[in-house]
Computed example of a mutant assay.
Amino acid sequence: MTPTTEQELSEIIAGSNGPLRIRGSGTRAIGRTDGADLSLASMTGITLYEPGAMTIVAKAGTPVAEIEETLAKENQRLAFEPMDHRTVLGTQGEPTIGGVVAANVSGPRRIAVGACRDFALGVRFVDGSGTVIKNGGRVMKNVTGYDLVKLLAGSYGTLGVLTEVSLKVLPEVETSATLTLRGLDDKTAIRALSSVLGSPFEVTGAAHLAGTTMIRIEGFEASVAYRAGKLRDLLRSFGEATVEDADWTAIRDVRGLADQPGDIWRISTTPSAAADLVAQIDPKAVQYDWGGGLIWALTPEGTDLRTKLGAFDGHATLIRGKAAQTFHPEPAPLAAISQGLRAKFDPRGILNPGLMT
């Protein structure tokens, strides 16, 4: 089923007699759920763009590439740098903005500017009964009431099917530079990243993989040059940092792990615990992002990673693989809240059933 209007979508959901599998163009096929395919790929188009207000509104099926191309003409960007999962998952099609918001997809720049949900101003969606709901607007406001915008971001279509999203955008940066250290072990690299992230020099990328530690700074050329010098001084105890070209798109999309066989896990934790967790896993390959707060681990197929890790401060999501539950089990109090929310928004349990449980 591929509705072209919000009304069509509402009628499909209201008249559904069974579960629905919600998707955009299928590029972020994470997790398993049964049901008839319901695609938002035909609900496309930018409905409002106000460069002066740094706001863009688009239908959920609008390709991310179209939005980025439109923003680039006005020297603006999606600041949260959404990951493209196609390389990791081997999927086809064009990533959609609805999928980005539904999965709260954020890239390396999250450490500096925040996640996708922090830039979501408003949403329109259809709940599990077929009711069309609008929440939020086109500007940042501090108001009382339910913030459904933040709730829908990261709900993976289990609370409602997004039809339109409103996002805050930011100006494009003038230039960037990447400081690189080589040969550091994981623990030392994370200490180096923590030292720069705790500095006043506005780091927008902090990653470590295959013995290479990378620190990105962005902004006006003079500012970048000044901060690069200060950060090199700060890093001298870890080695001589050099300014080198770096492919942050490859880091964003985890390309270093994507072309190797095995399961891929996304682990969110505290940077201070990251290296010890990786030692417990003993993965085939690993990439640290967000200064060590985000771990991408490649493991042999069927690895029971959560059993290996035991209880820890964070959560592990199976991005590629089939042997385990996709999302980390929630603590009982949080699980009860999640179940209550789903019962309110989708009382029949037809929207991506079982995906997040």
Rank of each mutant, 00 (worst) to 15 (best):
G93E: 09
E172Y: 00
Q287W: 00
G302H: 15
G302Y: 05
L179Y: 05
A210V: 05
S42C: 03
G137I: 03
I30L: 14
F220T: 14
P63H: 09
L121G: 12
A112P: 11
S338K: 11
L38I: 06
E94I: 01
Q260N: 02
A274L: 14
A14W: 00
T326S: 03
A297W: 00
E66W: 14
G107E: 11
A285M: 13
F327A: 04
G229C: 12
A241Q: 03
E240D: 14
L184N: 01
A228C: 15
L334G: 01
A192W: 10
D304M: 06
M43L: 12
T4F: 00
P51Q: 04
S338M: 09
T2K: 06
L170D: 09
I281T: 14
T249S: 10
T91C: 02
L234N: 12
A279K: 09
A60K: 02
Q92P: 05
A65W: 10
L184I: 12
F238R: 15
T91F: 06
I13W: 10
F312H: 06
E244L: 07
G239R: 09
E6G: 00
L148A: 08
Y146N: 15
W290E: 10
F125G: 08
R232W: 07
A189Q: 13
V57W: 08
G310N: 07
P333Q: 07
L355G: 12
Q260Y: 03
F119C: 10
S16D: 05
A60Q: 02
R232N: 04
T242E: 13
T213N: 07
E240T: 12
S199K: 12
R124W: 11
L193H: 10
A14S: 00
A250H: 11
L148E: 01
I12Y: 01
L78T: 00
G130R: 14
I295G: 04
A250P: 11
G291R: 09
L277S: 05
G198H: 04
G205M: 04
R252P: 12
P51F: 01
V173T: 08
V161M: 04
N104C: 03
T4N: 02
K73I: 09
E81N: 14
A316W: 07
Y49G: 02
A324W: 00
